Amino acid sequence: MQIPHNAFKAALKKDQTTYGIWAGFATGYAAEIVATLGYDWILIDGEHAPNTIPTILAQLQAVAPYATQPVVRAVTGDSVLIKQLLDIGAQTLMVPMVETAEQARDLVRAMRYPPHGIRGVGGGLARATRWDGVPDYLATAHEELCLIVQVESARGVENVEAIAAVEGVDAVFVGPADLSSGLGYPGNPRHPEVQTKIRHAIDATRAAGKVSGILAPQEDDARRYQGWGCQFIAVGIDISLMRQAALDNLRRYKEGPAASAPSRTY
């Protein structure tokens, strides 16, 4: 048995834009529905959604038959948690609030087995190895693993060149919400200073030969960031889309809350 091919990682090497959707319902059933829609990738959010290792596993299993590629965002860069996420079969990880190259190097080590890292060996207990069905997993796992670090603070942007240059970091994902809050403009990622920082992070990542991504649920934001060079863009959030569609449906029959646009800050 071979290690599953990481089509998301392979797409990063191509000069094309991929479009993703945030998954926040924390259930395999909802994730599977989204996986049938044609998005290139789906972000299973372990940071702000009420996810646990078992619920993330259920979503990975639910989306496995479909072309939409799963990306798992960890709640933290803790090496023990990363070990668990990799063992249940996550191949692409996004880690929030990375601010230094040292942090990035620690994350790379957490994703690799000794002697190149510190990942513990799960062997026959791990879905990632197909329960020891992949004979050379220990030697080849890193080839199909993908690490995305999130730069979403002023300090992170200051160090983005060094972060992006770390070997083993595949991509840098900019977080407009936390960045705008940290710069003193909460809820306003369109502030010129925030936009300047975002543009700098994108440019620096590309200059390092790496790929940049971003969350942009509103079309004008998404197209602007695409024009700046973002190669993978999340253009929707499942919870927000359901809420907006439900409000639109209700207003056909009775007066309801005013329409709300997709968030610019999540």
Rank of each mutant, 00 (worst) to 15 (best):
Y266Q: 08
R252K: 13
P186G: 02
A101Y: 11
H116G: 00
G213S: 10
R73N: 04
R206Y: 01
I148C: 00
D40H: 12
L147F: 05
S212C: 14
D178A: 00
G123D: 10
L125M: 13
G229I: 05
A258P: 11
R206G: 04
A204R: 14
Q16N: 03
D45Q: 06
F25E: 11
M97D: 11
M94P: 03
N249V: 09
D78E: 14
P192G: 03
H48P: 06
A154F: 02
Y66W: 14
R119E: 07
D221W: 13
W41M: 00
Q244S: 12
V34P: 02
A90N: 01
H200T: 13
Q231I: 03
R251V: 09
A110F: 04
I82M: 15
G227I: 01
Q61W: 02
Y113Q: 06
A245W: 06
Y29E: 15
R155L: 13
I239L: 14
G46W: 08
A101L: 10
A11Y: 03
Y29S: 05
H191L: 06
I21Q: 12
G20M: 03
A23Y: 02
G122H: 03
F173D: 02
A67M: 06
E193C: 04
G256S: 15
M242Q: 10
T55V: 07
A104T: 09
I3R: 12
A258K: 14
Q150W: 01
G28I: 09
G20C: 10
A31L: 02
R119F: 07
Y39E: 06
A67H: 12
G46T: 04
R112I: 01
A10K: 13
L147K: 05
T27V: 08
P70G: 03
G20A: 07
V194S: 03
P189W: 11
A171H: 10
A258N: 10
N159A: 04
R119V: 09
V134H: 11
E158H: 07
D221P: 04
L147R: 05
A7H: 14
A165I: 02
A10N: 09
R105F: 06
P70W: 00
E167V: 12
A177N: 13
D106S: 13
L93C: 11
L215G: 08
A74N: 04
A201H: 04
G187F: 04
P114K: 12
D248Q: 15
L60Q: 01
M97P: 00
